[in-house]
Simulated scan of single mutants.
Amino acid sequence: MLSAAHFFKLISILESKFYIILKMNLLFAFLILMTSCSDDDDNNNAEISVDPPTATGIVYFESAFNMQISYANLKSALEDNENISIVQELDHSQNAASVDMDLAPTQIIFFGNPNLGTPLMQENQLAGLDLPQKVLFYEEEGQVFALYNSTEYLASRYGVADIITLPQISEALSNLVGTAVDASATETTSQLVDEHAGIESVESTTDFDSTYSNLRSAIEANENLSIVAELDHQANAASVGMELRPTKVIMFGNPNLGTHLMQSVNSIGLDLPQKMLVWEDETGAVHISYNNPEFLRVKHQLQANDEEITQIATALETLANTAAETE
């Protein structure tokens, strides 16, 4: 017969084994739960992964800050630099909202230093089509990118690789933007284009002032277009004691068309709004030059928006011919 002492000892042994098994089961369940959470975290990270811009000829930064701080930091740095002037600021997302369209936060700021930019235009006035400098900020899935055209791109497009101010421009842009967003610069895989790639030019039949006035009037007469900014490169050069033949750029846009492009590829906002350059060459001939929208499509790897690209191309051609009085 089992004594009371042996009975309680047996109960104690069984309880001990029970708790060991229970603890093991709990540990196993905990490990399964942790593995599941880890998998969920991995899946969530994969879902919010954002591809960086891949456009030809740009330098980009993945900002450590949100949109508001990133943009404000750069603007403040530009304002504090006595050699730089802010030319224009443009909020693409607000412009989209003005025509009842949605666009993720997207802003661009234009600024210049005539001491650095003028030598490029002295070598090739067409460089004024990509001046003043500009930095685009856009947000995608919470990640903010800042980007601008690289000096390698400018050198290849305008044949100005030997101009001594180009390295200064490169260093200034990298320092200003890198500090503003607390990040390092990355160049996209493709940086070079053919000289004068994507530039359309029409020779005017009239003088410089008349041509520019015609262009401005034609833009104002189009209810779908708004002038964003105008810049007299020659006057800016003179302000720092440098010479430049008559060269002016005018920026204008149509949010109904441009927004669709940015909805497809964020980075194309770097080349919006549209710009037209009016310039007088060494022979006195006057030209109107602008970016071919098809070139911008290729540059930013835009796969859709055929209708918008065609409409923009037609509008630009019409404006140029009207200003040149060739029609």
Rank of each mutant, 00 (worst) to 15 (best):
M1S: 14
S3G: 05
S3Q: 06
H6V: 14
H6F: 14
K9H: 13
L10I: 13
I11A: 15
S12E: 04
I13T: 14
Y19K: 05
K23M: 11
K23H: 09
M24V: 14
L33I: 14
L33Y: 14
M34L: 11
E47V: 13
E47L: 15
I48A: 14
A55Y: 01
V59P: 00
F61R: 00
E62D: 13
F65S: 07
Y71H: 04
A72H: 10
N73T: 12
K75W: 07
A77C: 11
N81C: 10
N81Q: 11
E82P: 03
I84C: 02
H92L: 13
H92T: 07
Q94I: 14
A97R: 08
S98V: 13
M101Y: 03
A104L: 08
P105D: 07
T106K: 04
F110I: 05
F110N: 01
F111C: 05
N113A: 13
N113G: 10
P114N: 10
N115V: 08
L116Q: 04
N124H: 04
G128M: 04
L129T: 01
L129W: 00
L129G: 00
P132V: 07
K134F: 11
V135A: 04
V135P: 00
L136E: 00
E141D: 15
Q143F: 06
S150R: 00
E152V: 13
Y153I: 03
L154C: 07
S174D: 06
S174T: 15
A183L: 03
T188D: 05
Q191Y: 05
V193M: 11
H196S: 09
A197L: 12
A197E: 15
V202N: 02
E203V: 05
T206Y: 04
F208H: 01
H233I: 12
H233A: 09
Q234L: 05
A235I: 09
N236H: 04
N236D: 06
S239E: 14
M242G: 09
R245A: 15
M251H: 01
F252V: 06
P255D: 11
N256A: 13
N256G: 08
S267A: 11
P273W: 01
K275G: 03
L277W: 02
V278S: 03
V278E: 01
D281L: 11
E282N: 15
V286W: 02
P293M: 06
F295S: 05
I309M: 08
I309L: 11
T310E: 08
T318E: 09
N321E: 08
N321P: 02
